[in-house]
Design a protein around this nucleic acid. Structure first.
Lengths: 405, 405
DNA sequence: GGTGTTTGTTGACAAGTATGACAAACCCCG
DNA sequence: CGGGGTTTGTCATACTTGTCAACAAACACC
C-alpha cells in the first residue's frame, strides 16, 4: 500500500477487482461476484452496471441451475468491444494479432523473415505491412473505429526491455542495442493508443499465469526454451519485473563454471547447456536446424537411438540443475515449461523428475508441479495483449472514458 | 488488489500508510505527511490523531526551521508504548530482545549454548529462562503490563519455515524436522500474544530492507553467510516468501555440478563453495573454528600470505558466480551482504566486482550496488520484531483496540 | 507592527459502500 | 395450480471517509 486510498481510488479499485474476477473465473453470476469480492449486492449491481455501460461486460439472462431462489444474471467479459493489438518480433518471424479482453485471439497473421533482415528500420517497416495485412484479413481496423475499439498495443521483443518505458536495452539475437521500439512503432503505425514493449518470455509467463498452466498459482516460474532460454516469474500472484524490468533472465544463470563461453560474454550460462543448440549438438545434429531437427531427434530417441537418448538425458540433467536452483530460490508451486521444453517434456519427464528430486533442498517437503505450457505459441500473443490491457485493467472507467448517464 | 475496498478498509489502509511513512522516513511533520501520502491536511490530521490516541505515535511541538509559514508539528513513532519480543535461535546461541516499533532494540540478552543441547524441548526451556532474564534485565514484562504493551513475538529459526503457520519443516543444523516451535513456545511462555516464526536470513533481509542497507530499494537481495548461506528477497518493496514460505534458500542453488556433496543431499550447492567452512578449508585453517579463524585469515591475507589471499580470491569468485545468477534472475538494485560476507567484503571487494562484471548478463546496462549489511547481528533481532509487528502495521487500529473518544 | 506564507482547524459536501425492507423469480410440495 | 421457503435484484436511507473551502494561527521578513 504505497499510495493513499483516496475516495475515487475506492471505486477504481473495486471496478478493477470485479473485472479481474470475471477474467480469472470466467463468466460468473452476480451472486458469485458478491461471494468472491465480499462486496454487497447493491455495490456489485452498481459496479457491474458501470462495466456494462462502458462496454467491458455484458449481462446475460440467468441460466436455470435447478437450485431454489431467484436466479442471478450471468456477467461475462465483453469480448467484442475492446481489442488489443499484439505484435511479436522474433528472430526468424514476426506476428500480429487482435486479442479480445477475455484472452481469445480474434485474428492473427504471422510472416517468416530472412535472418538478414532484422535491423530496426526493416523490422518496423515489415510490422507496418503485417498490421495492414492483419486489418485486411480481420476486417477490423487498428485505428479507433465504431464497433471495436483498440485499447492498446503490446510488443514482444526477445531481449532486455526496460520496464518503465519499454526501451529495448539489448536484444542480442537481433543485434539491437538501445532501441526505442515503442517510439519507432508509434510513429510508423500511428495507432493513437499507447504502445507497450515487453520481453517475450515475460509475456509468455504473464499469459500462462493468467490463462494457461499457471492459473491458480500465486508463485510460478515460466521457463521458455527457444534458441535461447528465457523466463518469467510470478510471485504473490504478480509478475516480478525487478528494478529495471530485467528480471527473469534465467538463461544466463551460471550453472557450469567450467563450461562453455556464452554469447553474453559470461561462462557456463544455463543456456549453454540447455536449449535447442545444446540439445542438437549433443545429439550430433545440426544445432541451427530448428524445430524439424528436434522432431528428428525425438523420433530417433523413440526408436532407441543411443546418442539421441543420451542427449535427452543430458538435457534433463541440466534442466533439472537450473530448475532446482530456481525452485530453491523462489519456492514456486508451479514450474511451467514452454517452447522447446514443453515439446520434449514427455520424452524426458521421468529423468527430469529423478534429477529434480535429487537436487531440491529438502525435496520431500515441497510439492512443485513441473508442467508443460498449455497455450503454445499463442502464449506470447496473449501476453503481449495482456500488457496492452494493463492500464485498462487497473482503471477500467478512466480508460474507457467513464461517461455514464 | 485481491480484496475489495470496503469502507473500513480505506481507513485501515490509510492509517497503515501513515504509520509506514513514519517508520520509513523517520519523524516527519504533518505537512511532510501530506506531501508524501497525497492525502489532504484534514485527513492527515484525523489519521495522526487516531495513531496518537491508540498510542502508536506522538506529536511534538514544531521545530523552528527558519522558513515562513505556520510550523507543522512533528510526528514520530511512539517508541515507548508497544514492544515486540524477538527470540533468536541459532546453532550455538540463543538470544532474546525487546524491540520498539521504530526498530530500536530496547534491551537484549544472549546466551551461548553447547552444541549438544539443541533439541526442541531443551531449546524451549532455555528460551523461557532467557526471557525471564531479559525481563529482569530490562524491567519490562513480557506479559501485558501498563506502561509497555507487548504486541507480538517473533522467532528466528535457521531452517525452512512454513509461511502460513510458522511450522518449522526442517532445520538441518539443529536436527529439527516438522516442529511446531510456535506452539511449543506459546504454551511455555504464555505471553498472550501471537508468536510468529521466520527463517533467520529472511528476517535479516526484512530488517536490512526496512532499516539497513536496503532502505529505499524496492528490489533487493540479502545474502547472509554464516555456517551455511541463507538469503532473503525483496521484490516490489515486499518480501518474497514463495508458495510455502521457503523462498530465499539461495545456499542450495547448484553452482558446481562437479562439486562436493552438500549436507542437503544435492551436489555442488552454493554453500559448498562459499561460506565459512569453504573459506577456511581453502586457507588451510580449521573449518569449524568460527569467527576467530576468519579474523586470523583476514590478518594473514593483509600480511600478504599467499594461501590466505588465494582462499579469498576463490571466495570472491564463487560469491560472484552465485550473485550473478541471482542478479540475472531477479534484477535487484541492491545486493546486501550480511554476516561473514559483510566482514570479508572489504578484503575481496575489487576481486568481487571484477568477477561480477564478467558474469552479469549485459552487465554494462545494469547498475547493481553490492554493499555490506549495516545492522550487523542486530538485523535478525529487528527482523524478528518486524515479523511480530506485521499485523499491527497492517491494521493499527484493529490491533490496538480502536477505542477512541 | 504589517504583510505574505504556510499550515492546522472546522464545518459543509461528495462519493462510495453498508444496511434493511421489499419485490421478483426460482424450487418444492401438496 | 397455488402457497411456503429460498435466494437474489432493487431501492431508499444511513454511515463512513476523504475532499473542499474558508478561516485562524504561527512563523519569516521587511
Amino acid at each position: 500500500m504505497t499510495s493513499a486510498a483516496r475516495t475515487p481510488q475506492v471505486r477504481r479499485s473495486n471496478l478493477a477487482l470485479v473485472l479481474d474476477q470475471l477474467r480469472r473465473r470466467g463468466p460468473s453470476s452476480r451472486s458469485q461476484l458478491v461471494a468472491a469480492t465480499g462486496l454487497t449486492r447493491s455495490a456489485i449491481a452498481g459496479l457491474v452496471g458501470e462495466l456494462e455501460a462502458i462496454g467491458l461486460a455484458v449481462e446475460t439472462p440467468p441460466a436455470r441451475d435447478g437450485r431454489p431462489g431467484r436466479p442471478s444474471p450471468v456477467v461475462r467479459v465483453d469480448s467484442r468491444c475492446v481489442l488489443a493489438l499484439a505484435i511479436e518480433i522474433f528472430v526468424d518471424e514476426i506476428a500480429a494479432a487482435f486479442v479480445a479482453l477475455d484472452g481469445t485471439v480474434v485474428s492473427a497473421v504471422r510472416r517468416p523473415r530472412p535472418r538478414n533482415r532484422v535491423a530496426v528500420a526493416e523490422t518496423v517497416a515489415d510490422v507496418v505491412s503485417l498490421v495492414a495485412q492483419l486489418e485486411a484479413a480481420s476486417g477490423h481496423s487498428a485505428r479507433p473505429s465504431a464497433g471495436h475499439r483498440l485499447i492498446g498495443c503490446g510488443v514482444s521483443v526477445p531481449g532486455l526491455v526496460r520496464d518503465i518505458d519499454g526501451f529495448v536495452v539489448a536484444a542480442p539475437n537481433l543485434g539491437w542495442i538501445d532501441v526505442s521500439v515503442a517510439e519507432s512503432l508509434a510513429s510508423a503505425l500511428r495507432l493513437g493508443v499507447p504502445i507497450h514493449v515487453g520481453n517475450d518470455a515475460d509475456l509468455g509467463a504473464r499469459a500462462e499465469s493468467r490463462f494457461g498452466a499457471g492459473v491458480g498459482s500465486d508463485a510460478m516460474i515460466f521457463v521458455s526454451g527457444e534458441v535461447g532460454v528465457g523466463g518469467g516469474l510470478v510471485a504473490a500472484g504478480r509478475p516480478v519485473v525487478g528494478h529495471l524490468g530485467f528480471a527473469g533472465e534465467i538463461g544466463h544463470v551460471p550453472v557450469n563454471p567450467d563450461g562453455r563461453r556464452c554469447r553474453c560474454g559470461s561462462i557456463g550460462c544455463w543456456e549453454t547447456e540447455v536449449g535447442e543448440v545444446a540439445l542438437l549438438e549433443r545429439a550430433g545434429l545440426d544445432p541451427h536446424a530448428g524445430r524439424v531437427a528436434v522432431d528428428e531427434l525425438l523420433e530417433r530417441a523413440a526408436a532407441g537411438d543411443r546418442r539421441a537418448t543420451r542427449a535427452l538425458a543430458a538435457e534433463a540433467r541440466w534442466l533439472a540443475i537450473g530448475i532446482a536452483g530456481l525452485v530453491n530460490v523462489l519456492d514456486p508451486d508451479t514450474v511451467v515449461l514452454g517452447g522447446l521444453f514443453s515439446r520434449i517434456l514427455p520424452a524426458l519427464r521421468s529423468r527430469l523428475d529423478d534429477e529434480l528430486a535429487e537436487r531440491r533442498y529438502v525435496a520431500a517437503r515441497r510439492d512443485v508441479a513441473v508442467v508443460g505450457a498449455t497455450l503454445g505459441p499463442q502464449a506470447v500473443t496473449v501476453g503481449a495483449a495482456e500488457l496492452a490491457f494493463g492500464r485498462l485493467l487497473e482503471d477500467p472507467a478512466g480508460v474507457m472514458g467513464a461517461a455514464v448517464a
